[in-house]
Structures are given as C-alpha cells and as structure tokens.
C-alpha cells in the first residue's frame, strides 16, 4: 500500500471582502461579504515509500494547503487522505510523531535560545531516547556542518545556517516521511547546494520519503524522480521530469558558436531563438529533425567553433504549463 494516499481532496477558504476606501471599511462594520475560495478542488495522488516527489505550481495554487493537510494541521472539506494508514487530522498526535516538517519561510527553532537547546527541547517533546538522539544528532551535525553554530542563538544565524538547523530539527526524531515547503527559499547558491546534497543523501541512506514544494526548478532537477504540478487546486501533471517535458514540448535547444557572426539557419524544423555575438541559440524538434542530422547539416554549411544540445530549461517548461492553466 502506498505511504500516502490522497483522493479527491478539497479545501475551501472563506475570505472576507470589502470595498476599497473609507466607505467600504464602514460598510464592512455592518455587513460583511465573504467569498469562498477553492484552494483544492479534488486533488488525488499516491506516494510510495522512499520516493522523492517535487510538488510545484504557481503561488496560490494549493501546494502549501496540501502539505498542511498531509501534516495534520488543516482539516479538508472533502476527500480522503491517509498517511501511513492514518488520517492525519483525526490521529494528529500519533501521525506527527512519524513525520518531519519544514516550512522554509518560518522557523521551528526557539528564537532566543542557542540551537542545541532547541534540539534538546525537541528531543524531549518527541521523547527520543538519549542514545538514539546522540546518534542522529552526530550524523546531522556532520552532514549539515552544524558544529560551529550549535551554541549560537537562533536569532543570530544567517538564513542559510538557520535553514540547515531547521532541517536538522525536523529530523531529530528520525521521521520516515519529510514534508518540505520551500526549503531553499531565499538561500544563496552554496546553501542551496548544501541542502540538496543533504536531502539526496538522506533519501539514499535512510529511505526517507520526501515531498518537496518549491519554486526553484534546480531543486526538482537535482532531487526529484517525480514531479506533480498543481494549478488552480487541481493536479495538472504527475510523472517523471522527462515525461513532463514530453507532455509540454519535445523541443530541444542547439547552441552553436560560429567563426563569423553572420550565417543564416533557414531550415525546416529549426527556429532561431536569439543571437549573442558569435553564439546562436536554435530550437528544434528532434522528432522532425534528429539531432545528429541537424548537427551534420549545420557543420557542413557553417564554420562551427563549438556546439552543444540541451533540453529546454525546466523553467521554460513550467512557464508553458502554467500558461495553460485557465485563470
């Protein structure tokens, strides 16, 4: 049985509306209008043990709402949801004992206390055995390189340091399932890499299932064997990254460095995306023109210094997919 089963999940939020301006504000004192916003409209998916699943979608698509339902924080209005055979919000306490959660924009550490004291507090809250705690902590300190900052109060940490500590905090009780809501938000390149490396190792070494929401497509490329795309409260796509690519566009990009700046590429199946000096960006569909054939043709007609083929950047794929979402 899959570790996470979600079927037809629905959640509405009630949002108070009032007209702009002073009159509108006064009117709101007497009569309030509410409108119902559908955050989730029948979301369904299964996740197997040990998977690393990327969950992406534009802002307000319902990503965080899904994660909060799975974490037992919110009660949905419709649908079925089971994690490890438990309904998260009904058996919240038993459920959360076995999951770890990181909300990237918030911290679960005690602001005024040194990091290590937050960890000890969590150890007591989750009732982790001392020996197991020591072992997990040692591993996390090594892998996340926390040795130097354990005694620093959380408010004095940089964002990258804080995020590494937050990740460690979510794993002290050795959860079998980890929910990450934008774990790399605001981090610099080095910190992002550190977080990604860590998550990959975590999944390999301990088989921890990870559900990750993000806006950073590099996170997805680096970590996720599977991507789910949500928009307007519905799952739009669910599968491998390659599958997603194929679904949106099979196009690839050929980048050619020429000896001279001129040179035309008026051939079937090739469009010139842009030129930067000697460099030309071409787009082609390998189903119409196989890459080898195209390269041969171009090499025979132009003085080529260098060339390489790449997939469309994932951002581009996602942008196209988002554009299809009916607004």
């Amino acid at each position: 049985m899959p570790q996470i089963v979600v079927e037809g999940l629905g959640k509405q939020y009630r949002v108070a509306e009032r007209k702009a301006g002073t009159l509108g504000a006064l009117g709101g004192l007497f009569r309030r209008n509410y409108c119902m916003v559908d955050a989730l409209k029948g979301v369904s998916f299964n996740i197997e043990r040990g998977e690393v699943v990327g969950y992406i979608g534009p802002n307000g698509a319902g990503k965080s709402t899904t994660v909060k339902v799975l974490a037992g924080i919110l009660v949905p209005d419709a649908g079925r949801c089971e994690v490890n055979g438990r309904v998260p919000w009904r058996e919240r306490i038993e459920h959360v004992r076995r999951i770890g959660v990181v909300f990237g924009q918030r911290t679960q550490l005690w602001w005024d206390l040194p990091v290590i004291e937050s960890f000890e507090l969590l150890r007591d809250i989750y009732r982790v055995e001392e020996a197991a705690y020591r072992k997990t902590l040692d591993e996390l300190v090594t892998r996340l390189n926390l040795g130097a900052i354990l005694d620093t109060p959380v408010r004095q940490l940089s964002l990258g340091q804080r995020m590494r500590c937050d990740l460690a905090a979510s794993l002290l009780h050795a959860p079998e399932l980890l929910f990450l809501d934008e774990p790399t938000i605001g981090l610099d390149a080095v910190a992002k890499l550190a977080v990604r490396d860590f998550l990959r190792e975590l999944n390999h070494a301990h088989g921890v299932t990870v559900l990750l929401t993000t806006h950073d497509m590099d996170d997805i490329e680096a970590l996720c064997s599977r991507v789910m795309v949500i928009g307007e409260g519905r799952i739009l796509s669910d599968g491998t990254l390659d599958g997603l690519r194929a679904q949106v566009s099979s196009e690839r990009r050929l980048i050619v460095d020429l000896e001279r700046e001129n040179g035309s590429f008026e051939q079937d199946g090739v469009t010139v995306e842009r030129r930067e000096g000697h460099r030309v960006f071409l787009r082609f569909d390998p189903r119409k023109v196989p890459a080898a054939e195209l390269i041969g043709r171009i090499a025979s007609r132009h003085a080529v210094r260098d060339l390489f083929v790449e997939n469309l950047p994932i951002e581009e794929i996602i942008r196209r997919l988002y554009e299809r979402i009916p607004a």
Binding site: K68, A71, G72, I73, R92, I93, E94, V96, R97, I99, V101, F103, Q105, R106, T107, Q108, I125, Y126, R127
Partner: peptide
C-alpha cells in the same frame, strides 16, 4: 500572526 503556529500542530502534544 506569523503563521509559525503550524509548527505547534506538528508536535506530538496536546
């Protein structure tokens, strides 16, 4: 006010 209350609910405590 900050929304961190979500973390309170992820603790195995009443």
């Amino acid at each position: 006010q900050s929304g961190s209350v979500a973390y309170e609910l992820t603790r195995p405590l009443d």
